[in-house]
């Protein structure tokens, strides 16, 4: 168990390095978000699961898994909010991007945002 945990930690650190390297290397905000959300989230989750597997007690493991679940739930929402905020704030896509449907539909989006929110059952 402990060895498997250390292996997972090593893989997680590796993914973290790839993710942050992408953050430095990729050309615009949206691509950077891609690298940041995917690689760093999964890397940190791997580290936490590794800590849970090789930790000294059960309480340790439960807390680490809880932390991993929180990161897995919150990080895509944060990325989504950031991408939307950046686009509505006027940050353009990289010049070699092939298509931007969101920009083309900007009027429709504004309309939908201005309209009163429809009540919907969950």
């Amino acid at each position: 168990m402990t060895e498997l945990g250390y292996l997972l930690i090593a893989v997680g650190v590796l993914f973290d390095i790839f993710g942050t390297f992408g953050l430095v290397r990729l050309p615009d905000v949206y691509n950077r978000l891609q690298a940041a959300t995917k690689c760093v989230t999964l890397g940190t989750c791997f580290i936490l699961i590794g800590v849970a597997l090789s930790g000294p007690s059960l309480g340790f493991g439960v807390r680490a898994i809880l932390c991993a679940v929180f990161i897995l739930l919150t990080s895509p929402v944060g990325a989504h909010a950031l991408a939307r905020g950046a686009h509505l704030g006027g940050v353009k896509l990289w010049e070699k991007s092939v298509v931007d449907k969101y920009e083309e539909d900007a009027e429709k989006v504004q309309e939908a945002m201005a309209a009163p929110k429809a009540k919907q059952s969950d």
Partner: peptide, 13 residues
């Protein structure tokens, strides 16, 4: 902002 977000996740690890 993206950098700050990633930094937060790294601190958790």
């Amino acid at each position: 902002t993206v950098a700050i977000d990633v930094l937060g996740t790294l601190v958790v690890g």
